[in-house]
Every structure is written in structure tokens, then in C-alpha cells.
């Protein structure tokens, strides 16, 4: 059982825009993917150890 089990099993909250509808949780997942994608592109990648072989 999760610590926030009670909270997680309450009725979900939905964002409603005309015919479009998404639960807050799904929205977090989708935004999370976009954020991960953005971070992966923009964050500098560490450890540029070159092994010069031309």
C-alpha cells in the first residue's frame, strides 16, 4: 500500500476544454515527457573525454 494511497484513490480531477479532456495525472505524465525531451537536448552532456583518433 502506498503512503498516499487514500489521496491517489480519490476521484480524479480533469481539465476540460470543449471536447478535450485530460486528467491532471496524465497531463503531468505528458508534460514530464516533453520536459525530459527538452532537458535532454539542452543540458550540457558531461565528460567530453576525447580519444583523438582521426
Amino acid at each position: 500500500m502506498g503512503i498516499f494511497d487514500h489521496f491517489m484513490n480519490l476521484r480524479a480531477v480533469y481539465i476540460h476544454l470543449g471536447w478535450f479532456q485530460i486528467s491532471i495525472t496524465n497531463l503531468i505524465v505528458v508534460l514530464g515527457m516533453l520536459v525530459l525531451f527538452g532537458l535532454a537536448l539542452f543540458l550540457p552532456f558531461p565528460g567530453n573525454k576525447k580519444k583523438g583518433q582521426k
Binding site: 484513490n9 480533469y14 485530460i22
Partner: peptide
């Protein structure tokens, strides 16, 4: 209907409670 699972209201993506659903079925 009470859990927002009907196909006519994006139910395919939803889950009972506040858990993430099958968002990949959007």
C-alpha cells in the same frame, strides 16, 4: 461514467482514482 472511463470522454486513457492511465492510447 463516475470514474470518467467512458470512451466518449477519453476514458481509454484514464485510470481509476488519480493514477496515470494508458496515456499512450491518446
Amino acid at each position: 461514467t463516475a470514474s470518467n472511463l467512458q470512451g466518449s470522454t477519453w476514458g481509454m486513457m484514464n485510470e481509476t482514482g488519480r493514477y496515470p492511465g494508458q496515456a499512450w492510447l491518446w
